[in-house]
């Protein structure tokens, strides 16, 4: 059974149809990339999956169960973790506390287990040195890492990552890819929205292309990247 399944999901903001009859399945442990131009409705799709937005029509299934009416908290507890495209840290809490609260609530960890679990994630995401710093004072790059780390702390079965590689140096990007591959290797399913295609394509097996809210194409990385339609609409003239 698919871990996550979207069935004819649509969402409009006024006259603007931002998600237009989108359907796809995500298998347990799969890594799936989402690409598409800015404003295509990628982040909106995440908000529909997490429950920050309600679809106008269609269903979202987790383990075959319709979660369309569930709250954001319930979906987090059921195993959906997400990072925000624009980082949303708990600014007055320390970096460590940002993870601790996620591990205690969404992750359902007991007081005794949570600290080591959080420190482990901080080490893996390169944030251990800043553990006791206030999250509000972090530079942008570390904020993006914190988004990933905090989402990991909720112990997701499917991790939704929204443009976390943008603005990284090549070396940082290599590190990030290694971290995400490791998370994936441990069995966590991943849906990753990303413009940095070489990073994305070294992790995911399949790609979804969104354009004007419509699902333009789904397929393995090679097929999608070689499709003339995708080159034209998404990559324009540059390739």
């Amino acid at each position: 059974m698919a871990l996550l399944s979207l069935q004819s999901v649509s969402k409009s903001f006024g006259a603007l149809k931002v998600t237009d009859d989108v359907s796809f399945d995500l298998q347990p442990g799969e890594a799936l990339g989402i690409i598409g131009p800015n404003g295509a409705g990628k982040s909106t799709l995440f908000n529909l999956i997490t429950g920050n937005l309600r679809p106008d029509s269609g269903q979202i299934l987790l383990d075959g169960r319709d979660v369309s009416a569930d709250s954001v908290m319930a979906r987090c507890a059921a195993g959906i973790g997400r990072s925000f495209q624009i980082p949303q840290p708990f600014g007055h809490l320390s970096v460590y506390e940002n993870l601790l609260v996620a591990a205690r609530f969404g992750g359902g960890l007991a007081a005794a287990e949570a600290p080591e679990f959080c420190m482990d994630i901080l080490r893996r995401t390169g944030l251990a040195g800043a553990a006791d710093n206030p999250a509000g004072g972090l530079p942008l790059l570390s904020r993006k890492r914190l988004e990933l780390a905090r989402a990991m702390a909720t112990r997701p079965r499917v991790l939704l990552l929204d443009e976390i590689a943008g603005g990284l140096t090549d070396a940082e990007c290599v590190e990030l890819v290694a971290t995400i591959r490791a998370i994936h290797a441990e069995g966590t399913a991943i849906v990753w929205i990303e413009h940095v295609l070489h990073a994305l394509n070294s992790v995911v097996g399949r790609l979804i292309v969104l354009n004007f809210g419509r699902l333009l194409m789904v397929g393995d990385v090679r097929t999608v990247m070689n499709s003339a339609e995708v080159r034209e609409i998404y990559l324009g003239a540059e390739v």
């Binding site: 987090c76 925000f84 840290p89 708990f90 609530f105 359902g108 905090r150």
Partner: peptide
Amino acid sequence: DNAMAARSVGI
């Protein structure tokens, strides 16, 4: 600090 992010981590 951030109600939206809080809900997203299960609070």
